[in-house]
């Protein structure tokens, strides 16, 4: 077992080199690299935790915003519906009024036209009677050689046409 038989010859150099190596590891790794690695890991953990918290907060905000938006949209929908109903009612009323007005106008026009027609017919009839009376006078004069007064002719024509 060389570990025992060589011990007295090697222990000093073993210990010297071991202490040098351990001191180097302790200083460079334990005191140099390790704190930096731990800082990196801690920083990453903190970053992840902060990011998660921020994500949660943002999600809450998004939910709130969505709710507010939805409420606003609903309110706008309601307002729109009432506007539409109002506009419909107004349009209906206006249409009714216009129809009524147009009806009245049309009625007035047709009344006037009928009246004009009646007067035209009456004057035409009178003229026809006048012409007929004159024709009667002329016929009587030619055929019978007598004369008929304009009044009698007119009466005779009126009696015939009545």
């Amino acid at each position: 077992m060389p570990q025992l038989t060589q011990l007295s010859l090697v222990y000093q150099s073993q210990w010297l080199w071991l202490l040098l190596v351990l001191a180097a590891i302790y200083l460079f790794v334990g005191r140099g690299i390790l704190p930096r690695v731990e800082a990196t890991v801690d920083g990453r953990d903190a970053r992840i935790a902060a990011d998660l918290a921020a994500a949660e907060r943002l999600q809450g905000e998004a939910t709130q915003t969505e709710e507010a938006w939805r409420a606003r949209v609903n309110a706008a929908h309601g307002a729109g519906q009432s506007e539409i109903a109002k506009a419909k009612a107004a349009a209906d009323a206006e249409a009714q009024a216009r129809i009524a007005k147009a009806d009245a106008e049309i009625a007035a026009k047709s009344d006037a036209a009928e009246a004009a027609l009646a007067t035209a017919r009456a004057s035409a009839l009178a003229e026809v009677q006048g012409v007929a009376a004159e024709a009667v006078q002329a016929i009587v004069a030619k055929l019978a050689g007598g004369s008929v007064s304009a009044e009698d002719a007119a009466k005779a024509v009126a009696g015939v046409m009545a």
Binding site: S8, L9, V10, Q12, S13, Q14, W15, L16, W17, L18, V21
Partner: peptide, 14 residues
């Protein structure tokens, strides 16, 4: 038996 002797053990420690 010197403390400053370089051995294969010291080499492998390095």
């Amino acid at each position: 038996g010197s403390a400053f002797q370089f051995t294969n053990s010291a080499l492998w420690m390095l």
